[in-house]
């Protein structure tokens, strides 16, 4: 069980590393993969302006199942959030229900626009759903003086890495549109996020070399 989790982790890790190294022009997540159920720092990247225009605003829609979102502060942009109702409420940490959550993060009025041929990162912290194998899509739009550059297209049906045709389906979707929403693949973390939640096995594992490096060394 643990071993297969490690293997999946290694596989997705390698995949993410390789795809991240490809020069890219679309908006994308730097955090192409993330541990399911973790409270994690995420980073989206606006990778080019609308045609040849500079970016003056960026908006990200927080998908279903992602809660407790906090933008990470920046001195270059004004950051705003818009909220949405969570209906029915979901249990939050400590058992209190969550009834409202961040719907959209807006970065605007920058001290300097992002030139159309430069990439820029937009960071936030979020509690990711505890659904290993799921792919979450972060719809994103870059707004320029005249135009808009949307990355909002979603697949018809959700992706799951456990699906044997996962890779093929994903490729098909990505090839079908030039406006795919940036995504993050959730993997099953080797151990819970916080040390006080660790089991004896986790504690033993915690002193070991991280699994990604083990895989790569071989």
């Amino acid at each position: 069980m643990l071993k297969s989790a490690l293997l999946t982790t290694a596989a997705i890790g390698a995949a993410a590393l390789m795809s991240a190294s490809t020069a890219s022009a679309h908006n994308y997540m730097t955090t192409l993969r993330a541990p399911a159920g973790y409270m994690a720092d995420m980073e989206a990247r606006a990778a080019h302006g609308c045609l040849a225009e500079d970016i003056k605003e960026v908006r990200i829609k927080i998908p279903e199942g992602v809660y407790r979102v906090t933008p990470i502060n920046t001195r270059e942009w004004e950051v705003e959030t818009e909220m949405r109702k969570v209906d029915p409420p979901v249990p939050g940490d400590g058992g209190r229900p969550i009834t409202r959550t961040v719907d959209t993060i807006i970065w605007k009025n920058p001290t300097a626009v992002t030139p159309y041929n430069r990439a820029e990162g937009f960071k936030f912290r979020a509690k990711l759903p505890n659904e290993p194998g799921k792919v979450i899509f972060w719809q994103m739009v870059n707004i320029c003086e005249e135009g808009r550059d949307p990355y909002t297209d979603l697949p018809e049906t959700a992706f799951d890495t456990k699906d044997p045709n996962f890779g093929k389906k994903f490729e098909e979707f990505m090839g079908s549109t030039a406006h795919a929403a940036p995504y993050t693949v959730l993997y099953k973390p080797a151990m819970p996020q916080y040390p006080w939640e660790w089991t004896q096995e986790d504690i033993e594992l915690s002193g070991m070399t991280p699994p990604e490096q083990t895989a790569e060394a071989k």
Partner: peptide
């Protein structure tokens, strides 16, 4: 492990190839 990594590499090529040209 090797097979898995190979699989992953193929998969990642899939990602990379289709994804980011604009």
């Amino acid at each position: 492990i090797l097979t898995t990594v190979l699989m992953a590499a193929t998969l990642s090529l899939g990602f990379a190839s289709a994804a980011w040209s604009h």
